[in-house]
Write a protein that binds this DNA or RNA. Structure first.
Lengths: 168, 168
DNA sequence: CTGAATTTTCAATAATTATTGAAAATTCAG
DNA sequence: CTGAATTTTCAATAATTATTGAAAATTCAG
């Protein structure tokens, strides 16, 4: 396997893996391409490399910027915008956790809060059982939220070093 | 909001959240229904509650069993099969981590292993840069894999207790 | 300012994924 | 065994999600 094939394979499989994580395949491929490309890329570069349309390239680059995974770079003497991915994999992981926490965990806690305020007699078995379940999931979620917040703050130290020792 | 509305809402929103995690919406709804239902349910019960076809109900129940989230229960004097969800939310989280690790993290490490064996002169900047990136991601993944393994073993203790103290 | 270069939007369409429901397979009471 | 009850499969179809590409909007050199 030569370098061109390897890059191709990385991009392709990264996209496949991403779909299992609920991430758009093309967005993951754009990200993969940028991770293994030294110099910043223009929309035209991305279109050419991945064989996708301008609209698609533009949309996914902007979405990657929303996730903080990609930044615009400035180039004087060129009207075109160029983009580069964050290369530090620990930061990448942190940014992804940050966004998913905000987009998924936060709304979940909000939902569970609402549901635990269900009306009715708390001595009723059905209601008791339901609120117990909801409260358990809520407790879990709030805890997970805290753990992730701490991980985000601690950045790359979050699982190097002391983490594993606790469990050994 | 009364109990029926609350249950309805829980099932509906759980399904929506699940799609963001790359999980089939109906599978998540079947799971949600079973989490808030005391007694085991038959395929017919699920069909009626969620307004889905027999094939769909059957497929998703079996998939939930593959994830260890749901078990068959035995009922004498009844030909029908009944199913019940694991109610302990810590176990649920552990089972999900276990499956996702196996289905997603393991293939990823395998891919990265292959890619790091790319042919060519290691003094070539392009090759060097590519293998560096791949190796960084691999190192991260292997580490994540270990952390998750330890968490799975430690079960509910994994984030109660000593975890947070490390970072405080 | 002007207008060419570039980016963004979004309706139409394509691709993918989920669902149905009937036929086939399996199970098990009698 | 038999055959009714039940479960499973899977081709056809529906629903959802992603992509295209041209038109509109924006940017900026001159």
């Amino acid at each position: 396997m030569n370098i061109a094939e390897a890059k191709q394979k990385f991009i392709e499989h990264w996209g496949i893996l991403a779909t299992q994580w609920g991430i758009n395949r093309t967005m993951a491929q754009v990200h993969a391409l940028m991770l293994i490309t030294e110099k910043p890329l223009s929309t035209d570069d991305i279109m050419a490399e991945l064989n996708i349309s301008r609209g698609n390239a533009n949309m996914n680059v902007r979405e990657l910027m929303n996730w903080n995974l990609v930044r615009k770079t400035i180039t004087q003497g060129d009207r075109k915008e160029y983009f580069a991915a964050e290369k530090d994999i620990w930061k990448v992981a942190t940014y992804i956790m940050e966004q998913r926490k905000k987009r998924e965990l936060d709304p979940m806690v909000k939902l569970l809060d609402e549901l635990s305020r269900v009306e009715g007699d708390k001595r009723n078995t059905e209601i008791k059982s339901f609120t117990d379940t909801v409260n358990n999931i809520k407790k879990f979620s709030v805890h997970a939220d805290k753990v992730i917040s701490v991980m985000i703050k601690a950045e790359e130290h979050w699982f190097l070093g002391s983490f594993l020792k606790v469990f050994k």
